[in-house]
């Protein structure tokens, strides 16, 4: 079954393009300190707000820092925030969905009503509030994005569980008097893995967009640490004179998010043969 999936994956252009870009990004993020000649935090006031040139490929910012170095180091922040936040959402969403779908009854009702409430909120309002009230830092950003993005996953898992619960293999497993954790994790979970994987991959792109918006508003990753969003914020301050501060970090976000979305859509085609 796995070799078949792999075969389909290799033939899927979306999935291949997405994973190729992502592999490159991960490589860039890991090698960032080796690749850049300039420290992303090194200020040089004489060289401030210079347009792109051979020595500064993406120009310099208001403090004379090399924008290319900052964008490259920003890759680390975005990838880590996106993946960890979605990891957290996966953990909460899958557990909630499994429990609600497996037990049904009032447990199900409780979870679903809670999700209804949370989904009526514009998530960004909740996120802005929490971060502004606590402290804007990367940990808070990751946690709050994770805490506000598990609901869709939970609904998905629950829906799948409800239909799987009645299937023969589940009745057979129950007839064998297997323990509940075993029923949940060995028999149910693997069967909901595919759609969850697709949704999670698409979710990483969304989380990266949210982080960049927060950092842009000054509520995310704090300067001097470079994040794509906070470089864009400087870009807005110098919008009249320094277009390069706006162009490059945004392009980096676009490419990264696009890569995750391509991979997610590709995985959907690969894992769900019904679409053929």
């Amino acid at each position: 079954m796995w070799s078949l999936t792999l075969q389909r994956f290799r033939k899927n252009k979306l999935a291949l393009a997405g994973s190729a870009i992502l592999a490159l990004l991960v490589l860039l993020a890991l090698l960032a300190p080796v690749l850049v000649a300039m420290d992303p935090l090194q200020q040089d006031v004489v060289q401030r707000l210079r347009p792109p040139s051979w020595s500064h490929w993406m120009g310099t910012d208001d403090l004379g820092r090399d924008v290319f170095s900052r964008v490259l180091f920003g890759t680390r922040i975005s990838l880590v925030v996106g993946i960890v936040a979605v990891g957290l959402a996966l953990l909460i969403g899958t557990s909630a969905g499994l429990v609600a779908g497996f037990y049904g009854g009032w447990v199900d009702t409780l979870f679903m009503r809670l999700i209804d409430v949370l989904l009526c909120f514009p998530a960004i309002f909740l996120i802005l509030m929490v971060i502004a009230f606590l402290e804007p830092n990367i940990l808070n950003v990751v946690v709050i994005i994770g805490l506000t993005s598990w609901m869709g996953l939970a609904r998905l898992v629950r829906g799948e569980c409800l239909s799987l619960r009645e299937r023969d293999f589940m009745s057979a497993a129950r007839a064998l008097h297997l323990s509940t954790p075993r029923l949940l994790f060995v028999h149910l979970l693997p069967n909901v893995a595919s759609p969850v994987l697709v949704a999670a991959t698409l979710g990483v792109g969304g989380a990266i967009l949210t982080e960049s918006a927060l950092s842009f508003l000054g509520l995310g990753v704090q300067p001097p640490t470079a994040s794509w969003g906070n470089i864009l914020a400087v870009g807005k301050d110098y919008i009249h004179i320094a277009w390069w501060l706006s162009l490059f970090p945004g392009l980096a976000i676009l490419v990264t998010v696009l890569a995750f979305n391509l991979l997610g859509e590709g995985l959907r085609d690969v894992l769900d043969p019904r679409m053929d």
Binding site: S246, G250, I253, L254
Partner: peptide, 10 residues
């Protein structure tokens, strides 16, 4: 996939 803030700035 495009970041709204960026598109707005551009």
């Amino acid at each position: 996939s495009v970041p709204t803030i960026w598109l707005a700035l551009l």
